[in-house]
Amino acid sequence: MLSMAQIVAFSGVIVLGAMSPGPDFAVVVRRSAVSGRGHGMAAAAGIALGVCVWVMAAATGIAALLSASAAAFTLVKVVGAAYLGWLGIRSLRSALRGGGALALDVPEPARRGRAAAFAEGLLTNVLNPKAALFFVALVPQFVGSHASVPNAMMLAAIALTGTIAWFLLVATIVGTLRKVFTRPGVRRTVDALTGLTLIALGVRLAASSRP
């Protein structure tokens, strides 16, 4: 079993990793700003599940196969870059359309909207091969090259908890300020900056290579 020192150290690395700017952060901020805290939290849950998947994959050696295979790495990289580019273009189109102020009292199909936000967060994380490389390097330092099932599950639970805690905080802060983000000018700025960021991250991912 993992020691308390290992648990604390792994938790710290996970939270610091989550806090680093990237596509996950951009997706949660935009969802929270445009659609509200609930949608931002749904995106956060999707991202956390994606992190959990990568930790389990790294602990069982699946992620190592991805990082070792040039074809598999390239496939995930291209699909992930295309997905980020698509999200970015969609945000830019929203910015160019401008639109009016959001009507906060109009009911919306919350289930479908939150399910879409969850899927967006999950796919943004899972389709990022850099996440695989990160956890391939990180996880063996705590459980060795062959983790037991209990240890793998514990690391996955820690990663899930740490990631969702950070992004729920982000979603709550941005969602609380939603009235500011509903102003047409602010909303267009958020959409434009998010779109450019996601496209830039997609290009960067497409140009990346295995270490």
Score class of each variant (00 low, 15 high):
P107F: 10
E108F: 11
V79I: 15
G98P: 10
R97V: 12
A95W: 06
L96Q: 07
R97E: 15
L75C: 07
S94H: 08
D105C: 03
G99S: 05
G80E: 02
V106A: 15
S94M: 10
P107D: 13
A81V: 04
Y83C: 04
S94K: 13
G88L: 02
A81L: 02
L104N: 06
L92V: 11
W86R: 10
A82Q: 00
K77I: 00
D105Y: 06
A101L: 07
L96K: 00
P107Q: 11
L87R: 05
V78L: 11
P107I: 07
V79W: 08
D105V: 12
G80H: 03
S94T: 10
S91H: 11
G100A: 13
G80Y: 05
R90N: 12
E108H: 14
L87Y: 05
A81K: 03
A101S: 15
G98Y: 09
S91Q: 13
S94R: 12
R93E: 09
G80K: 10
R93G: 09
L92W: 10
Y83P: 07
L96W: 15
D105M: 09
R90H: 06
R90W: 02
L96V: 12
K77G: 03
R90S: 14
V79Y: 01
V78Y: 03
G80I: 06
V76P: 06
L75A: 14
V78D: 00
L75W: 05
S91I: 00
L75N: 00
A103L: 14
D105T: 13
A101R: 15
K77F: 08
A82N: 07
L96T: 11
